[in-house]
């Protein structure tokens, strides 16, 4: 963190994430693990369509997670 030269104080805002964020994060991880396992296992079962759709679900969920994480990061950055 860079200290502004024209002031000798710095205000840091700590925003505690709400409880539901962690619930959603847990659910996200749960679904990612479930779809990932389904994708791998479906291929072993010879159910290639199910495997392909599960891989798509894994990808979409991962992208959504990254996007939400990015937006959360931006909203937590104090305005200059």
């Amino acid at each position: 963190m860079t200290m502004p030269s024209d002031t000798d104080t710095l205000t840091i805002t700590i925003r505690k994430r709400p409880w539901w964020f962690w619930v959603l994060a847990g659910l996200w991880v749960l679904l990612e693990v479930l779809f990932l396992q389904t994708a791998l296992a479906s291929a072993r079962e010879g159910e290639y369509r199910a495997a392909a759709i599960s891989w798509i679900a894994v990808g979409v969920l991962a992208a959504a997670g990254v996007l939400v994480g990015f937006l959360q990061g931006r909203s937590n950055t104090p305005a200059r």
Binding site: M1, L10, I12, I14, R17, G26, V29, L30, V33, Q37
Partner: peptide
């Protein structure tokens, strides 16, 4: 101190998330 708090908060958050993920993935699910 504030920087440390901020860093610690981030680390704690990440740790909590990773711990939760690890628990769910490795054991819970």
């Amino acid at each position: 101190r504030n920087n440390n708090v901020e860093r610690e908060r981030k680390q704690t958050g990440r740790r909590a998330l990773l711990t939760a993920a690890g628990l769910i993935a490795a054991g819970g699910v």
